[in-house]
């Protein structure tokens, strides 16, 4: 996975080819097919009809960059913007359901997200820039499936599930099974992500978030860590999930952490040992955002910091 300029050569860039003098998104797409259905049912039917030829468009912050100056290569667009309900955050007794078109800014501002999923909330606030957070969506972040996608480790740490719909019905996939490789998931070309479902964390759940990047904004993560710990009344760890981004082909949970820590009190854990465990179990690569050696070193450090932070919060 080493990014090699020598292998790929230096692409001959161009300028302004896609943009001409118009600024309405619909106009960019005149050369290809553009659909903006008003119901999910209609959307999956269109998708079924065109198979893999359509790009499903949410905020566009990944797609339009990926196809910059090459929009003509896209045969058609399925824009989800007119489908009702996809922009909502709904609270149920045991879960919260987040529509795929909910933006990072909305995750950042939502009182419910702040209260129940502070790690997701803080991760959303660390995405890109205000412009990207205003346009970019949780659904887009999931479907793009970048190993460095900032929301993915938090979703994993909160045990999220994804509802996928097609003309043939729907299925619910746990986050742990969804990602299969860099920019690859199990979603089929005829399916649309319609809901992100996260169980409500019980009381005494604490989280910690860390993003390391080469600058403070507008940066693809070099490494991320989402740590969520649930305690019982006796302050014993009921569950602990240490999830990392940008250290493997997909976001990963280090399950051994759970095995070692469950049933213990946090003050009885050996933080350095757990940090070392995390460093050992990840499989980072060398790329422009960081080297494998660096990522292992940092994974250990930020794991220790996160445990310290949670120990402190839990003691309050």
């Amino acid at each position: 996975m080493k990014e090699s300029a020598a292998r790929s050569g230096n692409r001959q860039g161009t300028s302004g080819g896609d943009f001409k003098d118009c600024f309405r998104p619909e106009d960019y797409f005149t050369a290809s097919k553009y659909f903006a259905p008003e119901s999910l049912k209609e959307a999956v039917e269109i998708l079924e009809g065109y198979g893999g030829d359509l790009k499903v468009l949410a905020g566009g912050t990944d797609l339009l960059v990926e196809y910059y100056e090459r929009l003509y290569e896209v045969k058609g667009w399925l824009d989800l913007k007119n489908i009702p309900g996809l922009k909502e955050i709904k609270v149920f007794e045991d879960r919260i359901e987040i529509g795929p078109l909910v933006t990072h800014t909305e995750l950042e501002k939502s009182e419910n997200i702040k209260e129940y999923y502070p790690v997701l909330n803080r991760a959303a606030a660390d995405v890109g820039s205000p412009q990207i957070r205003n346009r970019g969506t949780i659904g887009g972040n999931i479907i793009t499936a970048s190993p460095a996608g900032d929301l993915l480790a938090p979703l994993m740490a909160y045990d999220a599930e994804f509802k996928l719909v097609s003309t043939r019905g729907e299925r619910i996939v746990p986050v742990g099974q969804f990602f299969t490789g860099p920019k690859r998931t199990i979603i089929s070309s005829n399916e649309i992500l319609s809901r992100i479902i996260i169980p409500l964390p019980g009381e005494r759940t604490y989280g910690s978030w860390c993003k390391v990047g080469k600058r403070k904004a507008l940066i693809i993560s070099s490494i991320t860590l989402a740590l969520v710990v649930k305690f019982n009344k006796e302050r014993v760890i009921k569950d602990i999930r240490a999830c990392l981004g940008a250290v493997a082909p997909t976001p990963v949970e280090i399950k051994e952490v759970r095995k070692r820590a469950r049933g213990k009190r946090i003050e009885d854990l050996n933080f350095s040992e757990l940090g070392e465990l995390v460093a050992e179990r990840i499989s980072p690569i060398d790329d422009i955002r960081g080297t494998a050696e660096y990522r292992r070193d940092v994974a250990r450090e930020i794991m220790i910091n996160a445990l310290e932070e949670i120990a402190e919060k839990a003691a309050e």
């Binding site: 090699s4 692409r11 080469k214 904004a217 940066i219």
Partner: peptide
């Protein structure tokens, strides 16, 4: 600017990082 045998690895601002206002 990262080079590799004369090729340039970062030919845009996603890879060539300059400070933002937050920095």
């Amino acid at each position: 600017l990262e080079t590799e045998e004369g090729y340039i690895r970062n030919t845009n601002f996603d890879g060539y990082l300059i400070p933002t206002v937050r920095d």
